[in-house]
Design a protein around this nucleic acid. Structure first.
Length: 255
DNA sequence: ATGTCCCTTGGAAAGGGA
């Protein structure tokens, strides 16, 4: 079973890319971020025609997450349990095969010290509390999406950039690492401990052409799911297409 | 320091967000 996570930066603008990439890669589950559309505007028909069941948590203009699954969906929950949030950034679904998957879009944070940054800190704190709580559920759980943090120096194209700036401040990295220290794996590193490979390239400053990227998209797996991992990867192919998202899919295979 | 893209409003161009 292949599970991919992809920040598409508008599902309407990226529908053809999603179709083309899925036809090539055949993911069983696709976790989408930044839909930038309300639920009624989600292209259900076209995505169902691709063979996916859809669970959607949309929002006007910003944010929005979804789960596409070839395996039937039993139950859907929206928002981080126990966290009051105006924004649509988290959705999870129990699949009929017993696996729970979730799609997450962590706030960007704008600038260190800003209100948006404080919101990012609160979001991570709530996520930590929830993930700690659900460790007692001894079932496979796979969470993928845009965490808006580069975990280590190797996850940034220019190590000199590491430091007190957004996406790589000590506090942000501490938050991401604290999730992993609970027992969840950064699945990419399970198979690729030393490889530098990116998932996001800023639209600006010719970042893609110069491969000035960051790894800020992850698939986290609970211990049960980590034991089931057979392969991981980041497919940067669609980032090179015409009119791309600034992110590219990250994926895992579990069996 | 920000060279781009996508959204919204309002019905063109500009601001917000990333």
């Amino acid at each position: 079973m292949k599970v991919a996570a992809w920040n598409v930066n508008s599902i309407k603008s990226r529908l053809q890319h999603l179709k083309d990439w899925s036809a090539d890669f055949h993911p069983d589950v696709v976790l989408l971020q930044e839909l930038k559309c309300q639920d009624p505007d989600f292209p259900y028909m076209e995505i169902e025609e691709m063979g996916y069941h859809c669970a959607v948590f949309g929002q006007k203009a910003y944010n929005g997450v979804a789960i596409l699954s070839k395996i039937p969906i039993k139950e859907v929950r929206k928002g981080i349990p126990g966290f009051q949030d105006e924004q649509s950034r988290y959705i999870e679904a129990d699949l009929e095969n017993g696996i729970t998957v979730s799609s997450i879009y962590v706030p960007n944070g704008s600038e260190i010290g800003s209100d948006k940054y404080q919101y990012k800190m609160s979001f991570y704190a709530a996520l930590h509390a929830y993930l700690k709580d659900r460790l007692s559920q001894e079932k496979p759980f796979v969470m993928g999406g845009d965490f808006n943090v580069a975990k280590e120096s190797i996850d940034i194209h220019d190590p000199d950039k590491v430091g007190e700036r957004i996406l790589c401040s000590q506090a942000e990295r501490h938050h991401l690492n604290s999730l992993i220290n609970l027992g969840y794996a950064d699945s990419y590193r399970v198979f690729e401990p030393h490889k530098q490979y990116f998932s996001w390239w800023d639209y600006r400053a010719g970042s893609w052409d110069q491969d000035k990227g960051w790894r800020i998209d992850y698939v986290l797996t609970c211990p049960y799911a980590t034991d089931m991992l057979t392969a991981v990867g980041i497919d940067k192919t669609p980032r090179g297409w015409e009119k791309p998202s600034d992110h590219t899919p990250v994926w895992v295979e579990i069996s």
